[in-house]
Nucleic acid binder design. Structure first.
Lengths: 383, 383
DNA sequence: CTGTTAGCGCCTTCAG
DNA sequence: CTGAAGGCGCTAACAG
């Protein structure tokens, strides 16, 4: 029953042609042309023998694989899995195999995977997931350098190491695309985090909110920082700056949102019947949907209600989180499409950098008017 | 700036040893032993040159890759992405690269990916996602056969084709693990869907529910069918059989849950103030969390409330869906762990088939008592 | 247009 | 214990 895979030379022999001819027949060679009848014969016996080429062998001979590397922070996070779905679809269309790396938020691992992809001569590599700013953006820190050496890693700062590895990969003919925000001059599918947050602030202000809080995520995570600053800047511009007290940082996860909200609730005495402060936030912006869901849980656990005691808004519009109750106001990012675009870009199909626009979606979690029957609430407001 | 990857022979030359010695030094050969000083020298220059082996070349020489194939129905579905996270973690620990295939529910594509993995001599392959029963489990259908041929695919029925391809892969030395339910005699990480559904039925019955409905998913999907029948059988045993009318099928997705619930609501006049039927279901079991969330949205859109008008329960305990409001009663499946186990099993670390137990988690979506303050509600009931 | 011949980078018998 | 040589499956110059 066991059968060693059929090789090209077997096909060639069986078809009565040379190896080269068989190869040319099966995949049109650059300098193509094989007599029609021969080609047909080869193809036929290939099918009959159930032949299919060995990717490793092809990779060796051609000097490049058929693999597309996708590196994400955490594949279990719906943000990334949605992007991955887009990448998988586009990759299949291009006949590429996607190799997945879930770094679990470790920059070291991220770098290692990129190096692996490079070494493996992947056709292209897509980096999803926000960059982080270095802990000390200060002077050429000698201590950090020795630490890096001790770890046996690059002599440069991590971010630069990543960038230069990627650049080297690109120089060697590999395709690259980064998702989120730019890394050096590499091709990027940029997500308009600042613009989306700005629109959200305006939309919320537009429906009457005046006192805002923010669950800002990790301070050094670019995506989180951009969304936060976009929101805060607009708020200031609108004349409703959020006090520092009401901007709390936390992990970019459900639990992070939960904890941050808990902190905010106690800190600002939101809705506490006995001691609600007159200046407590009316609405809280969590910088991603997953955090927002955690935040809503915290509100509920505090015996309060969304949106009556505090409204909550998120960012991303994760499909599967779309209809939590109350339905979450958020900023829609077409994640699956982002994955597809990034793939095409990394493959050189798409040439120019793309800025993906986002769209505010107002739902019940930020409803202002007193609870009641508003079955038609939930229309979109374009940003 | 561009630098062609360093090869082993460069390292060897630089270190002043032969290629063979370098190879043996870097990866302890079977018949090992390299003089200590030489080995050190090789290792040192390898590090200095930033050498790392070319996976394709190794694959060719050794006859097997370092790749682990993971095929799922839809990577954007949290069920699969959670499993994928477990697989990714375990794979990294084993030094394997995971290649991801998202079949978008197409059995053809699934088969194609398995064949690719086999051809590529992947080290192992993990098949996640429920099998479907063939449309016609009847006699050796000639028409189906010609259709298959016309499609250029296997001569056997799809399911059998999959199984035999997998078996062949295994016979050729590849590791295999299937997640969900058994496929032939292949290693399997079986999920106790029937037992979980049974426990859920008992738990709901235990807190007083007597009239049940089921959003059953696609009839031919094994996982859905098992959960449905496990639930229904126990209900019958408990003396509260669910009428056929209250078992509605639909897609295994959020939208499927939404539509199915909408159908059920109108069909059974659940909670319709004017015409609620006395025998309308009090609680509805959606065979997975994603459907359950859709179902809750449908209930809400019908102007009804969960759990007051109808209670809703799901299955899986997707982390990110855990705290929708009201919090979802469900059956917990340790998905990430499942992914890890499957990986170890496919790699031959784990030897015996595993039956993964599930656990009922009662939360607010099936709370019976009148709404009020029950902040401590939500404890687990072990199954 | 087709066949022959080198390798691609690495592992692995075989001698030495 | 180490070095030389062959080959994995396929492609890409070269001849013919």
């Amino acid at each position: 029953m066991s059968d060693a895979p059929v090789t090209l030379s077997q096909v060639a022999r069986e078809a009565g042609v040379s190896l080269a001819t068989a190869s040319r027949a099966i995949n049109g060679s650059a300098t193509r042309s094989v007599r029609e009848d021969l080609r047909a014969r080869v193809l036929e016996t290939a099918r009959r023998l159930d032949y299919s080429p060995d990717p490793s062998a092809q990779a060796m001979a051609r000097g490049r694989t058929t693999a597309l590397g996708l590196v994400v922070h955490d594949i279990a996070d719906p943000y990334f899995s949605t992007i991955a779905a887009g990448v998988a679809r586009a990759a299949e269309r291009e006949g590429l195999i996607v190799t997945l790396a879930s770094t679990e938020h470790s920059p070291d691992r991220e770098l290692a995977f990129v190096e692996l992809a490079r070494r493996q001569r992947s056709r292209a590599i897509i980096l999803a997931g926000s960059r982080t700013t270095p802990p000390d953006a200060g002077a050429g820190s000698a201590p950090a350098e020795t630490a890096a050496l001790a770890e046996g890693r690059s002599r440069e700062g991590r971010p630069r190491a990543l960038e230069s590895t990627l650049t080297a990969f690109q120089a060697a003919g590999g395709g690259v695309a980064v998702i989120g925000q730019a890394v050096g001059d590499l091709p990027v599918v940029e997500i308009d985090n600042v613009g989306g947050a700005d629109s959200l602030a305006r939309a919320l202000h537009g429906i009457g909110y005046r006192r805002f809080g923010v669950l800002a995520g990790p301070p050094r995570l670019r995506t989180a920082a951009d969304r936060t600053s976009g929101f805060l800047d607009t708020l200031a511009e609108l004349g409703c700056p959020a006090p520092d007290r009401d901007v709390v940082h936390g992990a970019f996860t459900r639990d992070g949102g939960y904890e941050a909200m808990r902190e905010l609730v106690s800190r600002s005495h939101i809705g506490t019947a006995s001691g609600a402060r007159a200046d407590a936030p009316e609405v809280v912006f969590a910088v991603n949907d997953v955090m927002a869901v955690g935040a809503m849980a915290a509100v509920r656990d505090a015996g309060l209600s969304v949106p009556d005691d505090v409204a909550v808004a998120g960012f991303d519009d994760i499909h599967t989180l779309r209809d939590v109750t109350p339905a979450l106001t958020t900023v829609r990012v077409p994640l699956e499409e982002v994955g597809e675009i990034a793939t095409r870009m990394a493959l050189g199909v798409e040439l120019e950098n793309v800025l993906v626009h986002t769209e505010v979606v107002l739902r019940e979690s930020t409803r202002r008017d007193p609870p009641g029957r508003h079955p038609t609430y939930g229309m979109r407001a374009t940003s």
